[in-house]
Amino acid sequence: MLVNAIEAKGLVKNYVTWDRRGFFKRKKRIVKALKGVSFNVIRGEVFGLLGPNGAGKTTTVKIITTLLLPDEGKATVMGYDVVSEAEKVREVIGVTLSVEKGFFWKLTGRENLKYFGMLRGLKGRELDRRVEEVLELVGLKELGASDKLYEEYSLGMKARLALARALLHDPPILILDEPTIGLDPMSARTIRELLVKLAREEDKTVLITTHNMFEAELICDHVAIINDGRIVAYGTIGELKRRAADRLAVEMIIAAPHTILGDLEARISKLIGIRELGLEPLEEGRARLRIVVKPGEEEVIIAKSIEAFYSNGIKVYQVRVHEPTLEDVFILLTKGSK
């Protein structure tokens, strides 16, 4: 009996892109998306591939779902090789990529599911039964959305339908690329609860990618943190948190329009001489700054930051010091490693 549902070993992927330089001129550029990614997903668990934008999550997902060929390395799903046994792999996986599209706009949710069920060889009563089952499971029935045209769906409904399609052929493995991104809290919760239930009760293996720490903390048994094409940490949530056990987290709520956040992050880290910080947008033009520091450093860092903010005309609303959360571990591992 296989222990690992998914195994990835030394995956490397380079993209070739062409930068435009004027009307005819173009310059070739190599994007190193994956620089040797290895991880294992144990059968029956919820596994989180966690990383910031551009880290290589989608690229990894595309390789293990047979949609993209790796340049180097090897990956297997239920023991099947994703390159040489791609058709076998496709039989055992249910997949969602970007949840805001991927269906016919002019067909209803139910018709769309029927189409994809038929593609997978379901027919007759069996097809109808499965379609009704998954519509029920993801809560689209309850929302009265089964017979609405896809173009009338909200993002939450689209994400639910995407998950329904992944479940249609009852695959043992689900591979979901940011399944809750941008969703209303209600839909996100339904989906998270369903994923946990599928893993616990139906022994399905679930791989999700996310940049949402909170989500990973809620549902994942194991997490691998990917940054800049490399896995920088692997473990349970508890194990990862322990990595930052000797650190403290400083949290500040400041007034900063969302458009300047990227710029601001670089400037602050220069001013206070610390790289392990992260800025995330909040509501009403506010943002949350997290800085990971060694115990004893916090007072100086806070004083320096407040000074830096005031001299730049940025208001500080709140300052807090606490034990590191998974988000702080994430900042420590992704920012500190550069």
């Binding site: 067909l107 038929m118 997978r120 060889g121």
Partner: peptide
């Protein structure tokens, strides 16, 4: 189970039909 050519054609006939039905 692998999908057969017939599966693909059946699915495609269905989506064409449903599309026309919704776009008279």
């Amino acid at each position: 189970m692998p999908s057969t050519s017939i599966d693909i054609i059946r699915a495609s006939v269905f989506s064409t039909y449903a599309w026309l039905k919704n776009n008279k």
